[in-house]
Nucleic acid binder design. Sequence first.
DNA 1: ACCTGAACACCGTTCAAGT
DNA 2: ACCTGAACACCGTTCAAGT
Lengths: 195, 195
Amino acid sequence: MPLSSSLIARAALELGDRDGPAAMSMRRIAADLGCDPMAIYRHFPNREALLDAVADLALAEVAAPDPAAGWDSRVREILTSARAEALRHPGIAAHIASRPPLGANGLRLAASLNGALAEAGLSPSGVVHAAQALIAYVAAALAMANQAGVRDARWSQVSSAMIGLPGSELPVVGSVEQFEYGLRLLINGIRAEVS
Amino acid sequence: MPLSSSLIARAALELGDRDGPAAMSMRRIAADLGCDPMAIYRHFPNREALLDAVADLALAEVAAPDPAAGWDSRVREILTSARAEALRHPGIAAHIASRPPLGANGLRLAASLNGALAEAGLSPSGVVHAAQALIAYVAAALAMANQAGVRDARWSQVSSAMIGLPGSELPVVGSVEQFEYGLRLLINGIRAEVS
DNA sequence: ACCTGAACACCGTTCAAGT
DNA sequence: ACCTGAACACCGTTCAAGT
């Protein structure tokens, strides 16, 4: 079986799913494939390019939103699904967060998002601005969910000290609830923008 | 001059300002200080703890917002200033984005932000949710601004292809304008939440 | 007891040597 | 011409040896 870029990316994605982000090194991916590390460089110019491909692959199963739904629930669907898919792939989630992929799947999502925002009544440049704000927010929520184990402790301590809420009632940083709250704020904000 | 944790953090911040994030390794920081790399471990348990300290230091000069201003412009002031201060320190900006610091300065900012949000009329748990959404957004905007050189090309290509706008009129990813647009959406969203 | 630096177990990538 | 793997220039951190 000859190496190909999609075969490498696919193997790397699965390796990351199993062993986490620490496994996503050129050397370990090569070992997993049973090839020389340098063989990968025949298909990708460098590690970042490989990770970009893996990241885009991880978004392959993001569902297309119901076209009959309103623009706001379509936006919510796309972004919620993208977040969930990214979190299903722990090896590459951090990379998606730091560099939203613009491969075939990323482009499909961006087009879908732009369509919904245009339908909301935003101007063309408003669509671009709003899409970037939404993508930035999803990326950040992803980064937080990704290291939630570490951050929860820090943040609930801070929040409970400052707000006086019992820790158990605090939202988990990076939780779905927190994510959806911020998404609602942004969608409310877009609605205010066009009304 | 004996080593101390604040002396180390201060030197690391300046080194990063000069030589960028690649210079923020234990070995290079130690070389800059003229000490053994292991000497740093007598003051910080590991590299992440050192970077957390440096990150908090970078936020030292974020201005306290005018207390007479409305909650919305206070929120805007705090976050705009935090973003600007972080970007003034290229060595640590990416770390701030991935792990909003909770040292003395981070706590001061968080308290300030929470105060403004409480005044907006949010419930205690709404304050926590909204603060986290805002911090996540700033972190993401920071991450994008930080690698803007690379991303601009990717995104303007995509956006102009999909929206049909000339590339020159597109917002630069990670620009102040883009940042402020998203911030306005979130603040609009908060206003909608409490009305 | 304290401190140092050699050593360990890794990296991404270059490049010369082999086929 | 193609491919391999040794080598380069790094990492963060451990730990044994020195003072």
